[in-house]
């Protein structure tokens, strides 16, 4: 009896051990290493804030921070709204809706790297399909990825094309969980589509919205691939997001402390935003 009790006592820890180890090695470990590297300098013994001081006096860093915030301020609401609308569309009960669901989800099945390469070809200023199409209407060629005015929007487009498909599935799962009886009752009471949407659907999907918001924020702040492949941070730093700046610091400049500082700052920004989002949306619900 005693043995069974001990076994039962240890079993949960044993079961979570592999996950804990993996999280520690691949998540917490690198975070600890980054924090440690960010407060060390080859010129100063022990703990120092000189790397941060240097970073904060760097115009490139502030530009990257602004680009990152700007991109996310546009991209996160855009992706959430579009994904939600897409989920509403594919939740409709019509014949063959599963085909549409599949089509809408396909962009997510294409890796971000490949989708960026495809979009880069489509948006190419010389022989891209988009410019060729615009040419039919006598519209001058647009440097979607090479013009400062359009580059960030193009990166947002590339990310959202794929991202919306992914987040749509969460909203769809949420919609499926809503009791259809509520809609029927609302209809009988004379509620229109928008009343049902704002009074039933959205309030009941509050937790789904919260999850998507937090997960989307985290994913988009750490976005890197479309910038590296599509624009390399240009033109004139207009797409030089913090993650790409951290990458350049580590792998082009071999400056690990600078890279670690940026990563730590990103972590803090994401953490703060997620806390605010949780507070704002969690409530009693």
């Amino acid at each position: 009896m005693q043995r069974i009790h001990i076994k039962k006592k240890w079993l949960p820890y044993l079961l979570i051990l592999p996950t804990t180890v993996l999280i520690c090695v691949f998540k917490i470990g690198p975070i600890v290493t980054s924090i440690s590297e960010s407060v060390q300098s080859s010129k100063v013994d022990g703990f120092t804030m000189v790397n941060y001081k240097l970073l904060f006096s760097d115009k490139t860093f502030w530009n990257s921070t602004w680009v990152t915030l700007k991109m996310n301020l546009i991209m996160i609401p855009l992706q959430i709204v579009v994904a939600f609308v897409m989920a509403l569309l594919v939740n409709a009960k019509v014949k063959g809706i599963t085909v549409f669901r599949t089509i809408f989800f396909i962009p997510f099945c294409v890796s971000l790297t490949i989708s960026t390469v495809i979009w880069r070809m489509l948006l190419n200023i010389n022989d891209g399909v988009v410019n060729s199409f615009l040419g039919l209407f006598h519209i001058d060629r647009i440097g979607f990825l090479t013009d400062k005015r359009y580059a960030l929007l193009s990166v947002i487009l590339i990310c959202s094309w794929r991202g919306c498909a992914y987040w749509m599935m969460f909203f769809l799962a949420g919609l499926k969980a809503v009791d259809t009886g509520l809609y029927e009752a609302a209809k009988i009471d004379g509620c229109g589509f928008f009343q049902r949407l704002f009074c039933i659907t959205i309030p009941l999907l509050k937790h789904t919205f919260l999850f998507v918001l937090v997960a989307n924020t985290t994913a988009n702040f750490l976005l890197f691939t479309p910038v590296q492949i599509g624009t390399e941070g240009g033109p004139l730093g207009s797409t030089n997001v913090l993650m790409y700046e951290a990458y350049k610091a580590a792998f082009s400049y071999s400056n690990r402390p600078r890279s670690s500082c940026i990563v730590v700052i990103l972590l803090i920004i994401i953490g703060l935003i997620c806390i605010v989002q949780n507070k704002a949306l969690a409530g009693e619900g």
Partner: peptide, 28 residues
Amino acid sequence: DVRNGADVTEVIEAAIDQYESAVAASQN
């Protein structure tokens, strides 16, 4: 950036700033 039509003086100034930052960081 010059190829893509950015203002030449602006590009040059930005390049000087970026390189200076990189040098300062490397000497740290």
